[in-house]
Computed example of a mutant assay.
Amino acid sequence: MPSEEVFILFQRLVQKKLGIYLSKQKRLMLGHRLAKRLAKTNIASFSHYYRYINSPENSAELELALELITTNETFFFREPQHFDFLEKHILPQLNPNKAFKVWSAASSTGEEAYSIAMLLSQHYQAPWSLCASDVNKSVINHAKKGIYQNERAKLLPQHYKESFCCKGIDEYQGYIRVKPALRQRINFFCFNLLDPMEGLGQFDVIFIRNVMIYFEDETRQAIINAISKRLSVNGYLFISHSETLHGLEHKFELIQPAIYRLQARCL
């Protein structure tokens, strides 16, 4: 495990590069995730590894280290109340003559995006599109492949599993893979939430769950300001139940826990 002083250096590096604040409780996690890279690069200490990744000629290793530090595990239909609300309250009130647009703004390895896509494919007959982004290139590549351990699908309803997934065999025993027809419906891309969002277009629903807990208030405020401009009139914002907009300036109306609607006067 890195010393407290070295952990602070990594903490500042991650915040500078990604805007993510690592609490001191993440020190053990950081050490565990980077230990293999130290062994791979034959570097004896975390302090030497820190200096190594900050050298311009080692930018590829820096990118890899940042990806390892910020990767988060998730699973299908996490926080199922959100998907129930989408199905039962949002979809029935939509204009079927207008395309419905959704953005999974911190999609990690893709389980959230595929959960949304399965629900829309099953319950919404009008045109829809789904974008899914993450700052971490490796998890986006994982998401595009759509291969997951069965443990990640523990909350995936059986009828969705049968309709949209294939069961792994041989070396993929214990895995499922999302079928190509559904994978092709999602636009996966790498995106940093601190970057300008103007080119992303407008969305009716934005999921940004389990990511703002890693940002400090100033950064969270900037992200919420930018996100609000990407939502259509009366668009919905989903955050995780472990997060809140409390203490931030915003024009969202709380509808249910962790579900907000943008008030029209904000636009």
Rank of each mutant, 00 (worst) to 15 (best):
N97T: 12
E253Y: 09
Q11R: 10
A117K: 02
Y260F: 09
A99S: 14
E61M: 11
G168I: 07
R12T: 06
D84C: 09
M118Y: 00
R51W: 03
D84N: 13
A126R: 09
R37E: 07
M197R: 12
F76M: 03
S228M: 11
N141M: 11
A35N: 12
E112K: 08
R209L: 11
N225P: 01
Q93T: 15
K251E: 11
P80L: 13
A35K: 14
I176L: 11
I176S: 00
F100M: 09
L86C: 07
S115F: 07
T70A: 11
K98E: 13
K88G: 04
R209T: 10
R27Y: 01
V205Y: 05
F207K: 05
Q202W: 06
F238G: 05
E171P: 06
C165R: 00
G201A: 03
A226I: 04
I223L: 14
K17C: 02
K137M: 08
L194R: 14
L68T: 06
S232E: 14
S121W: 02
V178R: 00
I206R: 03
F75T: 05
L156Y: 00
L200A: 07
T41W: 13
Q81F: 12
A143L: 07
L119A: 04
L30M: 02
D170K: 15
I176N: 00
E61S: 08
P257Y: 06
I53G: 03
M197Q: 13
F207W: 11
N234L: 11
S240H: 04
L200Y: 09
Y50G: 02
S138L: 09
P180Q: 03
V139H: 03
F85W: 12
P196H: 09
I224W: 04
I20M: 15
P127S: 13
L155R: 12
A132F: 05
S133W: 07
H89N: 15
Q25I: 12
V211W: 06
I223Y: 05
F10D: 02
A117C: 06
K144Q: 15
Q173K: 15
L86T: 07
W103K: 02
A117L: 06
S47W: 01
C165I: 00
I140H: 02
M29S: 10
N95A: 12
Q15E: 15
S133Y: 06
